[in-house]
Amino acid sequence: MKGQNVSALNIKRGSTSHSAYDLRDPNAEIIESHTLAVVVDNESGVLARVIGLFSGRGYNIESLTVAETDHARHLSRITVVTTGTPAVIEQIKAQLGRMVPVHEVHDLTVEGPSVQRELALFKVAGKGEARIEALRLAEIFRAHVVDSTLESFVFEMTGTPEKIDSFAELMRPLGLKEIARTGVAALSRGV
């Protein structure tokens, strides 16, 4: 009964959304995190349209960064970190790719090595030993002091989201008051 099994592996480039993703088990139920770079027209409403896709179709957004990156061509780059099963991630990319104002969709997680960075500001209040300890740790993490009073510091730090998480954990007992994070910006490595 069962016909010859033609898997997605044999399908040539151009015939499908064809990413390295098709090499995986499409039925896997594992939840994965992917960083997508989406190049869009820098026009009002475009960000709302992209975000609306995620909320409307029940996809997750872990992190979102957007700014104009090409003034002459009027383009913005949206970096979005999302989670889902392999099939859901494929669907997210296809849904993004077919939107009229979307020019390119890149899955930085599968398209090769990439660098991911986030900027964060931490307000830490404290006196005495805690204050000194905070400063010392900041030095280890290469965080800069960008504001300082007698009772508080604001540290600025760039790094991977994990690095920012661990710095925040360390600062918590030392008087962490507030954190502001930009969300992830990412680029593929090499040319």
Partner: peptide, 11 residues
């Protein structure tokens, strides 16, 4: 392209 493999995986 978003219709492909949306609900049914095809060969």
């Amino acid at each position: 392209p978003s219709s492909i493999n949306k609900v049914i995986r095809v060969d």
